[in-house]
């Protein structure tokens, strides 16, 4: 499937998504993280259109481990789950998202981040 990738920054991501997102034609798939190296992580917001052939839009931004990713729950309420997942899996702080969706305190922390080795 085709991917349209759009680069954003942490400051303008909420604004751009608000402008792009129309609940009647588009739906939000998920918030995804990809570890690039030990400290850098690529955060992706993935969208797809209803009833259009092979159409996916991905907003992405590369963040450091200490950065705080803005929350898009105000625009898209269903993003809350995937935001909590990213907090657990990558150890990156997302606004208004609590830890502990999947991981207990004694299990391996931030398992998908680049710095994690078993």
């Amino acid at each position: 499937m085709k991917i349209n990738k759009i680069e954003v920054t942490l400051q303008n991501v909420v604004e751009k998504i608000t402008k792009f997102y129309d609940p009647t034609t588009t739906h939000f798939l998920t918030l995804n993280g990809v570890a690039i190296d030990e400290t850098k992580t690529e955060i992706q917001w993935i969208f797809a259109d209803y009833m259009k052939l092979n159409d996916n839009t991905v907003f992405y931004v590369v963040v450091d481990q200490e950065d705080v990713v803005p929350s898009i729950v105000e625009v898209i309420p269903s993003a809350i789950m995937s935001q909590r997942e990213v907090v657990d899996m990558f150890g990156i702080e997302v606004q208004n998202s609590a830890k502990g969706l999947y991981l207990d305190e004694d299990s391996l922390q931030k398992p998908l981040s680049g710095g994690c080795t078993l």
């Binding site: 798939l29 998920t30 995804n32 990809v34 570890a35 993935i46 309420p77 269903s78 809350i80 789950m81 995937s82 998908l112």
Partner: peptide, 16 residues
């Protein structure tokens, strides 16, 4: 692989 992301239907439907 470098990354495999699975988005499952129930996970996305929980807010609904």
């Amino acid at each position: 692989l470098d990354r495999l992301r699975i988005k499952t239907p129930t996970f996305a439907s929980i807010p609904a």
